[in-house]
């Protein structure tokens, strides 16, 4: 069974360690603007919600890609972008109804969560357990899938 990121906003303190860990793992620099996970603040920070790709089964980004630059990693189930194939057309960024695949102007390619190959650094870095990497059945995955299917109908 694949594992997924389980996010519990109630445990999030908005320390942004996840964003820093993500950008360092993927870009080699501590720049939250290049993070694939993003913490959104509500009510001036009273509520904070970490948000990233759920690796949805529907895989809107993958299907929309015109050049097969997005594929499924058979080990993790993650939908991964191949920088060498991506031409930077950005069709995936408008096709994904969750807004979790984004254009990276410094590379001219798109970027999304790839679960760090099975060792997600955001979960590793999270000090409060707001982000954990667990068996898929434990996540809100089915809710996301239903939402995707509903949108598709």
């Amino acid at each position: 069974m694949y594992k997924s990121l389980l996010i519990d906003p109630a445990k999030c303190t908005s320390c942004l360690q996840c964003e820093l860990a993500c950008s360092f793992e993927n870009e080699g620099l501590f720049n939250p603007a290049k993070s694939r996970i993003k913490v959104f603040e509500f009510e001036h920070g009273l509520t904070t919600i970490p948000y990233t790709c759920t690796q949805c089964e529907e895989a809107w980004c993958l299907h929309a890609c015109p050049v097969e630059a997005i594929t499924v990693n058979p080990n993790t189930g993650a939908k991964e972008v191949s920088d060498s194939i991506c031409v930077g057309c950005k069709v995936c960024t408008i096709a994904c109804p969750f807004g979790t695949i984004n254009y990276n102007s410094s590379t001219g390619k798109v970027m999304k969560c790839d679960l760090c190959g099975g060792d997600p650094q955001c979960a590793e870095a999270c000090p409060t357990g707001a982000i954990v990497y667990v068996d898929s059945d434990w996540t809100g995955y089915s809710k996301m899938r239903d939402s995707a299917l509903e949108a598709h109908a």
Binding site: W60, G99, T100
Partner: peptide, 12 residues
């Protein structure tokens, strides 16, 4: 460019 897909999500 960031999270622009949610505009589709909301409309769709």
């Amino acid at each position: 460019t960031q999270h622009v897909g949610i505009l589709r999500g909301l409309v769709q």
